[in-house]
């Protein structure tokens, strides 16, 4: 499967282009003050990173990121924005310098740590040997479905996924406990309206 020099060059160019777009979007988010623009740009950031996931062969992750990051998150942010505020206050003076220094220091430490990391796309790196190879080899004889990611997600790591589903369910529960379906929510008023309409209809009949 290897051996196309042109293909690797194209992938490199794709990587550089997508990372540049990500940088531009991230810096724009940092500098903007209109929350509507920020929320829309964060959706764009998710969509561009989903494109990059496809270039990195992670199609399932790309799918999820496109559906969740660019779809649901943006809708939730807009919903929360309507309920809170439209513009962010500009940060000023020390509130800008101190975080910048902290962030630069953290970034320098992390970049120092990457020197020991295996190179990009290295097939012999510790992360890419061992259990990952086991999953690829065993999925066909043990489970016999072609999508290894689904096999690992649903079968090998089924207990883990059960926990994730529990977290999602608990989050839904927590949000409805925080915001409620009580007297302040539309759910109650819709039900009330329906009840009144039904009463009216009954009266008309009688």
């Amino acid at each position: 499967m290897t051996g196309f020099e042109g293909a690797t060059l194209a992938i490199d160019l794709l990587n550089i282009t997508l990372l540049t777009i990500l940088f531009v979007v991230a810096i724009a988010i940092a500098r903007l003050r209109s929350l509507f623009a920020i929320v829309m740009l964060s959706g764009i950031y998710s969509l561009v990173s989903a494109t990059w996931f496809v270039a990195l062969d992670a199609v399932d992750v790309a799918f999820t990121e496109a559906a969740v990051g660019a779809g649901i998150s943006t809708a939730l942010f807009l919903g929360a924005m309507v309920l809170t505020s439209r513009t962010a206050k500009a940060e000023k003076g020390a509130a800008r310098i101190v975080p910048l220094l902290v962030v630069i220091a953290t970034g320098a430490i992390l970049i120092y740590a990457t020197i020991d990391l295996p190179g990009f796309g290295d097939p012999t790196s510790p992360a890419n040997t061992g259990v990952g190879v086991e999953f690829i080899e065993r999925t066909y004889p043990e489970i016999a479905i072609p999508n290894i990611v689904t096999a690992v997600l649903a079968s090998y790591r089924g207990f883990d996924t059960l926990g994730e589903v529990g977290v999602v369910f608990a989050a839904g529960l927590a949000v409805s406990l925080l915001l409620g379906f009580g007297e302040r929510s539309l759910g109650a008023s819709v039900r009330e309206e329906d009840r009144l309409n039904a009463l009216k209809k009954d009266e008309e009949k009688s």
Binding site: D57, P123, I136, P146
Partner: peptide
């Protein structure tokens, strides 16, 4: 995800 990439590899769907 960039750690999981293999040079010359493809998406983990058996074919």
């Amino acid at each position: 995800i960039s750690l999981s990439r293999i040079d010359g590899g493809t998406a983990p769907i058996l074919f």
